[in-house]
Write a protein that binds this DNA or RNA. Structure first.
Lengths: 213, 213
DNA sequence: TATTCACGTTACCGCTAGTAACAACGGATG
DNA sequence: CATCCGTTGTTACTAGCGGTAACGTGAATA
């Protein structure tokens, strides 16, 4: 039969693709985001051209590898933001979810956040967008959540997007620094960040003597 | 005389080094952060080994190139934070200073923020620190300013560092997104971010109907 | 049987970062 | 004057990268 064959082929191809992705993930977890296509092909027991047939491009492979983890993280964050508690608790839960993720699998995190940029290829590649796509996506997701649920007045959508990207950036930068230095346990970091978002900077008093901030 | 000769040589070397850095800057501004050592050498009218003699490494050249701009930006931010106005105005001035900088010279900004990672070299290179060093530095600077001037209670230093890195990350991510999409003029972005820092998320009301945030 | 199609290979291209080896000039020193 | 030294500069090379062209192989379809 024809269709059966075609479907078998398709499913076999997808299975193979998953296998290749898992091999790639092993290598990336071992060698970091700079892992070479040769190394990935060797780990998968094949040679380079096959990788290029499946993913077209190193960026394609990395993108395919990224969406899986990104999807998982976005789902977890959405769940945290949907919990039936008050806003502060939900924000803390979301922060903790993100920080727990990067704490548990820092290599995955680094791969997602610092993917290698294009090198020699003349590939157009939207210039200026080679910043980590995960951050952009998280920012947009949070922006829609905020716009959906919070009353921000007239320029609601604009404010929501600024705040979404801003909050995600805060979480990311603080998490990146914390992951490198580990200056305090996770729950304290979560509390400090939530305090900052809850207007800590606005309400704190100036220290005596200095010019104030 | 001996010392005079040595000093002449030293100053000549430093002058040459500055010339090379300026050539490198022209190339980076033209070709982006992926500029090759060959291209930089050609722009300077010389060949590669000289660059390596002066800077040892591509990372060395890029670091030398980065400190100049970083220093300038840090100075401007410090000036904004030292203005004799109230805290909100100073924070807005600092945000605006940063955003104006990245708006005026986006190529410099991109070079500072997304420097090419190490490639083949087995150079130890503090793993996990290849995130943009500028962000780390800005975070630390802001942390010391906060710790010096704001009364944060018992765990002052820890909170100040978390807030410093968090605020810098917020500014960075929002600025990066804004630079790509330009959804609003700069002053509105500044106001939205300051509102967020002033507890906007904590005080806004839930929208009717939804689960709230 | 002949075609088709994905899987797989070897061998190559142009590029990169980085280096070894050598030449030439100028001032300090015997 | 001859010699050494430090700097500037060169050419020619290595090893590795991303990516590709050309070529086999084996199984299912027509």
């Amino acid at each position: 039969m024809e269709t059966t064959h075609r479907e078998d082929q398709r499913s076999a191809t997808e299975r193979r693709r998953r296998e290749l992705l898992e091999a790639a993930e092993r290598v990336v977890l071992r060698d970091g985001p700079g892992a070479s296509m040769n190394a990935i092909a060797a780990e998968a027991g094949i040679t380079k051209p096959i990788l290029y047939r499946h993913f077209g491009d190193k960026g394609g492979l990395y993108r395919a590898l990224a969406v899986r983890h990104t999807d998982a993280l976005v789902d977890a964050l959405r769940a945290a933001l949907d919990a039936p508690t008050d806003r502060r608790e939900r924000v803390e839960a979301a922060l903790d979810t993100y920080l727990a993720a990067i704490e548990t699998r820092p290599q995955v995190y680094r791969f997602l956040m610092h993917p290698a940029e294009e090198s020699g290829g003349e590939r157009g590649f939207d210039v200026g967008q080679h910043s980590a796509p995960l951050l952009r996506r998280l920012g947009e997701e949070l922006a829609t959540v905020i716009a959906e649920r919070v009353d921000l007045g007239a320029d609601r959508e604009e404010r929501a997007r600024v705040w979404g990207h801003g909050i995600v950036g805060m979480m990311h930068a603080a998490g990146d620094w914390w992951l490198g230095e580990r200056p305090c346990p996770r729950e304290r970091l979560v509390r400090h960040l939530a305090d900052l978002l809850w207007g800590g900077l606005a309400t704190a008093q100036d220290l005596a003597g200095g010019p104030g901030l």
